[in-house]
Write a protein that binds this DNA or RNA. Structure first.
Lengths: 340, 340
DNA sequence: CTGAAAGCGCTTACAG
DNA sequence: CTGAAAGCGCTTACAG
């Protein structure tokens, strides 16, 4: 070293006001020249903070998740935090392993994105005694903060949009894993039907897997009905993608024969043909909000427990009035004219 | 604690063969009951390994990048490594900050994904004295290992496929940022033209930005040519997405009027209408290979310096024979007729 | 304004 | 098979 002690160097590098200006500058210069870089591990051992947050995701390759993580990372970086990422693949053993790993690394906080966190998982994480933020997740509020899209409202908007176009046979293609998001979206759909005086038909509620693959079987079931739907509200854009393909495979046109709505507004949804009507979730912003919640808690402040983010209905080409209007008696002719 | 010393506990928890079986079990039981979890920071201070790898990405929201990271994380997890992620956004200051952060955290290795690592950046990282793996990146070989898709070969395959369909006016929609991937793909395109005895027309080489947005201007330029192309080979699927939209905006059909090929085989590409002909890059597998390269080096073995991964041409509906056979003399008229 | 001391929670030779 | 000791690289009261 260069003339001074350990402690002085440490203080100088932190720009401590206790130290002589000149000394500080000299030390910083020498440190830079020597390529000195302090050890986060040693520091965190004494400060008891790791300046690290752990992010648990089902799979980072999911575009919704990737968008959220992008926002988390951005905000974390601005505040000097590192982000540790771990896929859980929704497998219980991996979830446990991830929790363990984050605990060893003494993360200062945890964000869990759109997994279906089970009754055991959040308590497992909460043992760690660090703040937890759940993003679009089930929310047992005593353990964790949450950031959620306003599912019910957005879903009401979607369903009203379809009803407004003249649809009355509207199907809901849900997710089969019991995500809270699915429950809430379904509930908004029901509310809108009811408000419009439409009867809910259980045969019109079907389930996919939240991915494109899972939609085909559900769509086949819908199209096999005696009176198939003229519009389908899909749990998310990925399901909509699968639905669109399945509908085309059945020889039907979108939106002429069937209108389709998604949820998420993935980047690619605007590029589909026809462009997808959907609900925009501001993914990076939601990630940022989750990270900001943690930062607020780290700073000793108190943070909102339930942040609701409004979703925005984006109307594009995948929705249109139905070919066949409901109930009125000689409507076929009328409609036909409008279409040509 | 429970009857024994510090050191014994440490050994027992590592299943050291030195320790009495019974003692080991007793200690492990007590540790489990007490919810003991060792500190990675303290451990890494003495072992001088962090069991952490740093991953630098341009932006995790890019679907190619997310696919790669998914493979990295999977493999890292299997071997007890954590992954730290950092967006560079291709901004030089952020790249420097990221390098600094990884150095403080004493990552055991670094993976850089598909950024255009500049002449300064790799040396900056290499100062850290840890192994570096570049994925689909420029490769100054004395500093880093690399995993790359076999761009030239794949590009030859694509261009031959188009020539085989009867195309002779084939455009290349590249990336304007000087990625090595772009250079290599362009070179495969040239080679295939030459091998087929076709003359390269500079007016048919245009540049986008690797994203959908950047394609529109390039496509307009191509379609404004006196003799526009009948097929376009796009640098990646995102560009192809933008190209498809721009071509439709010009009132032309795909593949009838123009064939389109991409590169990547993003998840969504199979769901486009028409499904996109493209080159499959096995993204998670490439991530896995990058991580395995690091693991091999950590274990003291030597690892391949230049891993080439073959890309697979996936022919789908976006390519077809051209409407106008080449060379025939009054082609404009022919074209008109075919269009109506 | 600077130094000496203690300690964060581990691992690992070195003895016994 | 187990213990005592040293040390990894920092920060932070406590003196001066």
């Amino acid at each position: 070293m260069a003339g001074v002690t350990h402690s002085t160097v440490s203080r100088a590098l932190h720009n401590s006001p206790l130290i002589n200006r000149e000394t500080v500058e000299r030390i910083q210069r020498i440190a830079a020249e020597a390529g000195y870089c302090s050890s986060a591990a040693a520091r965190s051992l004494v400060t008891r903070r790791s300046d690290t947050v752990g992010v648990v995701v089902t799979n980072i390759a999911d575009p919704f998740v990737a968008g959220v993580v992008s926002g988390i990372e951005e905000t974390a970086d601005q505040h000097g935090f590192s982000v540790l990422i771990a896929n859980s693949n929704a497998e219980p053993e991996r979830e446990v392993r991830v929790a363990r790993k984050f605990e060893e690394r003494r993360v200062d906080g945890i964000i869990v994105t759109s997994s279906r966190v089970g009754a055991q998982y959040v308590p497992l994480l909460s043992q760690m005694q660090v703040p937890i933020v759940l993003l679009n997740n089930q929310h047992p509020s005593q353990f964790a903060h949450s950031v959620m899209i306003a599912n019910t409202q957005a879903s009401l908007d979607v369903t009203r949009h379809l009803i407004g176009l003249g649809h009355s046979r509207i199907a809901y293609l849900g997710d089969r894993y019991g995500h809270q998001s699915d429950t809430e979206r379904f509930s908004g759909y029901l509310q809108a039907l009811e408000a419009a005086g439409l009867h809910f038909e259980p045969e019109l509620a079907v389930h996919g897997d939240g991915k494109a693959e899972g939609a085909a079987a559900a769509i086949s079931a819908l199209l096999a009905l005696a009176d198939p739907p003229t519009a389908i509200f899909c749990y998310n854009d990925m399901s909509a993608l699968g639905a669109i393909r399945a509908i085309r495979d059945h020889g039907l046109r979108i939106p002429t024969d069937i209108s389709i709505v998604g949820f998420d507004d993935l980047y690619i949804s605007q590029y589909l043909d026809p462009p997808l009507t959907t609900v925009r979730q501001p993914m990076p912003q939601m990630g940022r909000m989750a990270m900001e919640t943690l930062l607020r808690i780290f700073a000793g402040g108190d943070a909102e427990y339930d942040l609701k983010v409004p979703g925005e209905l984006i109307v594009r080409g995948s929705t249109a009035p139905p070919l066949i209007p409901r109930l009125t008696s000689p409507p076929k002719l009328l409609r036909k004219e409008n279409h040509e």
